[in-house]
Design a protein around this nucleic acid. Structure first.
Lengths: 208, 208, 208, 208
DNA sequence: CATGAATGAGTTTTCATTCAT
DNA sequence: TATGAATGAAAACTCATTCAT
C-alpha cells in the first residue's frame, strides 16, 4: 500500500494549497496598495505565476478579494474561539478572547485594512463580512454572559445584548485605533478589561 | 457707497459659498458611490455646473475629496465642542459631547463613509484626518478628566490617557457599528455611559 | 447680421458631420480587417482623433459598426430609389434600379463586406439590416409589378411575390459573387435582365 | 490472423473517424456561436475529450474551422452530383441538382453560416472555399448546358458561361435568403425553375 | 469665470496554444 | 495518445484633466 503524503496527496489538495497561497499574498497586496491600486498582475508575479493562472482559481478580482476577507475572518474566528476555550472561568475566558482578538489584528494588520477596503468598495453590494462572522459567534458569547448574569456576577439591571454590543463596539474601535496609530494590543488589553469590568467611577462617585 | 449684502458681499464670499456647495454635494456622492466610482462629471451635474468649473475650485479630484473630509471633521468638532460647552458638570459635559458625537454621524452618515474611503484610498499618503482632529481636541478633554481625577470622582489608579483612549475607542467603534448596522445613537448612548462609568460587575463581584 | 455657413453652422451640425466622417472611415476599416480585427484605436487614428473621442459619438464598437451598416443601407436605398424614379417605363424602371443596385456595391465594396460581418457577428442579436431595408422597399416594387401583371406584360400564372422573391434573390446572389470574384456589374446586368425577362428556353423548347 | 472490423479496422481509421466527429460538432458550434465566440474548450467538451486532444487532430482553431467548411462543401458537392446523376434528361438533371442544392442547405443550415463566418474572418487569407468547389463542378455543368445549346433547347444568343453565372448567382442568393428568412426550399424550387426557363414576360410582351 | 469637447493612460479578463505527466 | 494546468498577448472602454472658446 503506497504511502500518501499528508499535505499534497492529490490534485485537489494541491489546488487548495495553491489557492490558499494566492489568497495570502493577495491579502498582503490588497492591504498594502488598496483594492483599486492592486493589479492582478502584481498578485500573479508575487506568486510566481502568470496572470491567467489566477483566473483558474478565482473568477474575478472581486472574488479573489472576497476570498481574502473571508479567509481572514475565518482565521480570526478560529483564533478567538480557541483562546476562549482554553479557560473555564467566564471572565478569564472573555478576557482572553478579547486579547486574542486584539492580538490577531496586531499580527495580521492586513486584515484590518481588508475590512476597510471591503466596505469602501463593496458597501452597495453586501454586508461587511466582519459582521456576518460577528453574528455567528454571538450566540456562544450570549450564553457565557447569561451565566454571569444569572449567578449575580453582573449588575442585574444590564441586559446581555447591551453588554454584547458594548464590548463588541469597544474592541472594534480599539482594534482600529491600535491599527491606525500603531498602538500595542498588549498594553491596551489590561486597561480595557479593567474599565469594562469596574467602570471609571470611584467608590465615592458610585454611591453619590 | 454701495450697500453690500452680508452673506455674499463680494467675489471672495461668493467663491467660498460655491466651494462649500460643491463640497456638500460631492460628500454625498463620494459616500454613496465610493471615491473610485464617483465621477467628477456627476459632481458637476449635481451642482448644475460644468466639469471644468470644478477645477476652478479644486485642483484635483483628490483635493476635492480631502476638502469634503476636512469640512466634515470641522463640523463634527464644532458640534461636539458646542455640546460640551452647554453644560458645567464634567460628567454631563462628557456625556453630552459623546451624545453629540454619535448623533452627528447618525445625521451625517456620509461622513462615516468618507472616513472609510479616505483610509481605503489614501492611507499611504496621509494620516487619517479623523485622528488629526481627534488629537486637536485631546488637550481640552484631558483637562476635564484631570479635574475629575483630582477631585476623586475617578478611580485613582486610572490614568487620564487611558481613559481618553478607552472612551475614544468606544465611541469610534460604536459610531461605526451604528452606521453599518443602522442602530440608533440615542438608545446606545445611555448604556454606553452607564457601563463606562460603572462597569459591568455587580457589587459582590467587585469586592470579591 | 452675421452670415452663417450652411454646412457647419453650429455645434449640432459639426457633430453630425464628424459622426459621419467617423462612420465613413470605420466602414472602410471594418470591411478591410473584419469586425474582430479592426481596433477602435485604428479607427481613431485614421480619423485623426483619440480613441476616447470615438466614444463621444458612439457608445461602443458595436454601435459604431451598426451605424456603418445602417448608413450604407440608407445610401443604397436612396440610390436605387433615385435610379428607379428617373424612368417611366416599368421595365426600364426595374432594370435601372437593378443596375443601380449592382453598381452601388461595385462602387462601395465595403458595404458588401459589412453585410457579411454583421451576419457573422450579430446573427444572434438582430435580423440583418439588409433585409429590414429590403422589406421597406417591397411595397413600392409590388405596385410596379402589379401594374405589369394587370396590363398583361407578365405571364398571368406568376404571382407578384414570386417575382419579387426571384429578382431579390437573383440580385443578392449576383452582387455577392460579383464582389467575391471581382466581376463587373455592368456586364452582368444586361444578361441578367435578358434571362429574367425572357428565360433561357428557345421558342421550340417553350412550345414543346 | 486477427479479424479486422471493417469500419474501424485500424488506428488510421479510428483517427479519421474521430477527426470527423470533431468536425461535425465543431461545425455546429462555429455556426451557432460564430467563429470568434466559439471556444476550443466548448468543442472539446461537446466531444467528450480534453482541449489538448483537439490539437492532436488539428493544428489550430483555424485549421479545424477550415476542415469544417471543407467537409461541408465536399458533402454538398457529393449530394448535388448524386442528384444530377439520377436523371438523364438534362433539364431534369439541372432542376434536380438545384433542388438538391437548396435542400442541402435547408438540412444543414450550419453550412450556410460557416460560409459567412469564413468570409468574415479569413477573406484576407484565402478565397472562399465555396467558390473553389463551385469552380470544380463548373466543367461538368458546362458540358450539360453545351449539349442543350447545341440541340437548340436554349436560346442560341445565350452563352454557356452566362447561363452558368446566372444560375449560380440565383441559387446562391436564394439559398442565403431562404436561410436568413427561414423560407422553404421546396416551395422556391418550382418557381425558380419556371422563371429561369421561361422568363417572366408574357408572349405578347416577348414579341413586342 | 465658465464651458464641454477632446485626450490617452491604464487594467481586467479571455482564450488559443503548449507541454509535462 | 490523452490530459488539463499554465501561459501571456491583446483590446475595449473609462474618466480625470486640460484648454480653446
Amino acid at each position: 500500500m503506497a504511502h500518501v503524503a499528508p499535505n499534497s496527496s492529490n490534485a485537489a489538495d494541491r489546488r487548495a494549497e495553491r489557492r490558499q497561497a494566492i489568497i495570502s499574498t493577495a491579502a498582503q497586496l490588497f492591504a498594502r496598495d488598496g483594492y483599486a491600486n492592486c493589479e492582478m498582475e502584481s498578485v500573479a508575479i508575487q506568486n510566481g505565476v502568470a496572470k491567467g493562472t489566477l483566473y483558474l482559481y478565482f473568477k474575478s478580482k472581486e472574488e479573489l478579494f472576497c476570498a481574502c476577507v473571508d479567509s481572514g475572518m475565518k482565521q480570526l474566528q478560529t483564533t478567538v474561539q480557541a483562546a476562549g476555550r482554553r479557560h473555564d472561568d467566564p471572565f478569564v475566558k472573555i478576557s482572553e478572547a478579547i486579547r486574542a482578538y486584539l492580538m490577531f489584528f496586531e499580527q495580521h494588520p492586513e486584515q484590518a485594512e481588508l475590512l476597510i477596503q471591503e466596505r469602501a468598495f463593496f458597501h452597495n453590494r453586501q454586508q461587511p463580512t466582519y459582521f456576518t462572522y460577528r453574528d455567528e459567534s454571538r450566540e456562544h458569547w450570549r450564553s457565557v454572559w447569561s451565566g454571569l448574569l444569572e449567578d449575580g456576577s453582573i449588575r442585574p439591571e444590564l441586559k446581555v445584548d447591551q453588554i454584547l454590543d458594548f464590548v463588541g463596539n469597544l474592541v472594534y474601535g480599539t482594534m482600529f485605533t491600535n491599527h491606525f496609530l500603531g498602538r500595542s494590543a498588549e498594553e491596551q488589553h489590561a486597561v480595557i478589561m479593567d474599565i469594562f469590568y469596574r467602570g471609571i467611577w470611584s467608590d465615592s462617585q458610585r454611591t453619590s
